[in-house]
Design a binder for these strands. Structure first.
Lengths: 250, 250
DNA sequence: GTCGATAGATTGGTATCCAATCTATTCCAT
DNA sequence: ATGGAATAGATTGGATACCAATCTATCGAC
């Protein structure tokens, strides 16, 4: 409903976070405007939104690209996640919301159950959710949005650096973290959290093949690229011959 | 240099942070486009940038306004600042950069000197800088930018809620904070920081007169404009006969 | 083969136009 | 006179066309 550029930005964001658009991919204004059937200006506004969020970098007179953070910046993102969540733990000391720990315990149980069934994919999802729940304990929307932004940037990194996690150990640390929080041992909890994120960061390796997996924009955005009309076509399908044959990957 | 909309956004941001544009003020596209001598689209792009930063809110088909955070949101902003800085302190425990404490000590000395000369204004400036330096200790640009964004929102609040600080006590707490960090008493330091920000938050009172200080855009954005508090009383009612202050903002 | 020039393509920005929506006034009925 | 509907104006959201500046890539000369 609200602004067309807003929902286009959300669509592109979703495509980036699900790795259908890989870091470094060019986001051409003309191409996107044809895909979404809007004018270039709306596309540019969407790209501005994404660039403010850190998911897209705009180079003057060259265009917009999916952000491709350096390894140094990747470390900084994880460190920032650590900082925020350590701060959240410190806040728990002042305003004990121990009743809310139930949610954390429930999440850990779901992680363990998923691991018991050998579903590491699902366990990973729950593992991400754990950190959301931790920040949600503050009931502070500003902090929650801050954390969500950092997490978006972290998910972007997953596309760039192959991750190889020891889900067992990660889940175990989550459980120990809940115990420490329950015992109000904030300092120990912060220390464990730091080690936890360092373990996560160690799971990342440079992945050259990810960049080879680049696919054309109209494929990456096909699912969500609905025509401008209220309900014009159910299928974007193959676009009828505008101009084709210039999609060589550089 | 880089994008026209970018520098216009920076100019408007600066005007907001120095309280020449008060919360709730309308940012009309046509009016701004005439002031900056650019097309409306560039203005809209600048407004989008500012809205992503949280300094302006855009309401569909109604326009853009300088953000007017509720008291609840103000509390959340300060709590988030606390969270980030507490996390920074926790990080200092892992990577001791004690040599950089010199900068913090120097800042405290400048605060005390300013207070000694009775210059509370200058002491307040140094007080803000103290928290920047604290976060800068991490050498983490992502965290620094995160903190800077929160501080911009905090400075916006100063225009909405009149602040009445006990600069002596604030400076004293800064000094004690440096001592605690030097002694590696991270937990105590975090606790003191929390109390510190609660003291700051208590200094804020609802200020109705600030909204009355609204002035036309072209005056607020003039090159050599002064902050709202000083010379606003000279011409309180600049608008002839139009409606005044009817900007209810849920 | 390397270096430079030229021609295309893309971006940044302007001007104009139109539809949808919100605001405020006016006018009418009670 | 007052409340409500109708209307006219203003503002936003967006489209289209157009132009200048810049980047890219091909082509040609040495």
């Amino acid at each position: 409903m609200s602004g067309r550029s807003e929902q286009i930005a959300a669509t592109i964001c979703e495509a980036i976070l699900s790795h259908r658009l890989v870091p470094g991919a060019k986001l051409g204004e003309r191409e996107l405007s044809e895909i979404f059937r809007v004018s270039r200006i709306v596309i540019r506004q969407a790209l501005i939104r994404l660039s403010e969020d850190g998911l897209v970098t705009v180079e003057r007179n060259r265009g917009a690209f999916v952000a491709k953070p350096s390894l140094a910046e990747a470390v900084e993102v994880f460190e920032s996640l650590t900082i925020v969540e350590q701060g959240v733990i410190a806040q728990l000391g002042n305003r004990p919301r121990m009743s809310l720990l139930t949610e954390l315990r429930g999440n850990v149980e779901r992680q363990k159950a998923a691991l018991g069934h050998g579903n590491e994919q699902l366990a990973g999802e729950f593992g991400l959710e754990f950190h959301d729940l931790l920040v949600a304990l503050t009931r502070n929307r500003v902090a929650i949005e801050l954390h969500a932004q950092l997490k978006r940037r972290a998910r972007l990194l997953e596309a760039l650096y192959r991750c190889d996690f020891d889900h067992c150990q990660l889940c175990d640390e989550h459980e120990r973290l809940v115990v420490l929080i329950g015992r109000r041992q904030w300092s120990r909890a912060q220390q464990l959290l730091d080690e936890h994120y360092r373990l996560v960061a160690r799971g990342y390796r440079i992945d050259d093949e990810a960049l080879a997996a680049m696919r054309p924009l109209h494929l990456a955005l096909a699912r969500n690229a609905e025509p401008a009309g209220a309900s014009a076509a159910a299928k974007p399908a193959a676009r009828p011959g505008k101009r084709n044959g210039k999609h060589a990957h550089p």
